[in-house]
């Protein structure tokens, strides 16, 4: 018993130590967000600001049409994530549980899409979208991200580790592929699907370069674009940049805290087997 307690304690100590390392940069960011312009630049750095500058958050919020950006970010993130999950679940099922001609080749070809740096894709995709007259619309912000092979790959790995026996027992009950996928596999793979959703939500939310390139007006822009308001060619307003970054993170944190309890829901608890 004692031995177990000690190892528990050790586990927590490691986690706390690591947690502090994870938190420090973040705390510094918050700290800077509350400093005055000169305090943010002082050497050696001021740890506790003389006066907490809550106004920075207000100033940062008003530096750009953040409300409009916020609405756009929500729209783009929700649709991108839902759409991507849909294409992902279907494709992952095919790769994990179906047998068909050309499966390996198609899989390899799709895998290669992960090997090209995004910097190479910007211009060709811009041209494609401009041919479809989609520049400066939500379509341009959403459609290219409706499929991610990384997500497909991840879900395929999870689907593959779910035993085939479940399929046979479902077959006996008269279930087809479609039913089996949505009513058995998807619930079983829920932790992975939720994890993928969380990752895609964050990716989409933080995406900066793409929205900037494919939109031409504030009406279509998203939150991270607003961050560039604090950097000019003469310097950066650190305190405002940090305040705005903090504002942008908060919704993501809430979403993550909400989603994470689903990520740990394990197989044995779903009570499907046995």
């Amino acid at each position: 018993m004692d031995k177990q307690k000690i190892s528990r304690l050790l586990e927590y100590l490691i986690l706390i130590f690591g947690g502090i390392l994870m938190l420090i940069p973040f705390l510094w960011m918050l700290d800077t967000a509350l400093k005055s312009g000169s305090e943010a630049m002082t050497i050696p750095p001021v740890i506790i600001p003389k006066k907490l500058q809550w106004m920075n958050f207000v100033l940062a919020w008003h530096a750009a049409p953040f409300l409009r950006y916020f609405i756009n970010s929500v729209i783009v993130t929700v649709i991108t994530t839902c759409g991507q999950l849909l294409t992902t679940i279907l494709a992952a099922y095919a790769f994990a549980k179906l047998e068909f001609y050309g499966k390996k080749i198609v899989f390899m070809i799709c895998l290669t899409t992960m090997m090209v740096p995004g910097e190479m894709l910007i211009i060709p995709n811009f041209i494609t979208l401009s041919k479809f007259h989609m520049i400066n619309t939500y379509y341009a912000l959403i459609i290219p991200w409706l499929a991610s092979f990384f997500a497909v790959f991840t879900l395929r790995q999870t689907f593959m580790s779910i035993p085939d026996e479940i399929y046979y027992s479902a077959k006996i009950d008269g279930a087809g592929d479609w039913y089996f996928l949505w009513h058995m596999l998807v619930p079983l793979a829920k932790p992975t699907i939720i994890a993928l959703a969380a990752l895609e939500i964050i990716n989409s939310w933080n995406s900066f370069m793409w929205p900037l390139i494919v939109t031409n007006s504030d009406k279509m822009r998203t939150l991270p674009v607003g961050l560039s308001n604090f950097t000019t060619d003469a310097g950066t307003q650190f305190q405002l940049l940090m305040a705005a970054s903090t504002i942008i993170i908060i919704p993501m944190l809430l979403v993550y805290i909400f989603l994470q309890k689903y990520i740990i829901a394990g197989v044995s608890r779903s009570g499907l087997k046995g």
Partner: peptide, 9 residues
């Protein structure tokens, strides 16, 4: 099953 993803990719 692959079609939606393949189209985008």
């Amino acid at each position: 099953y692959l079609a939606p993803m393949l189209l985008i990719l």
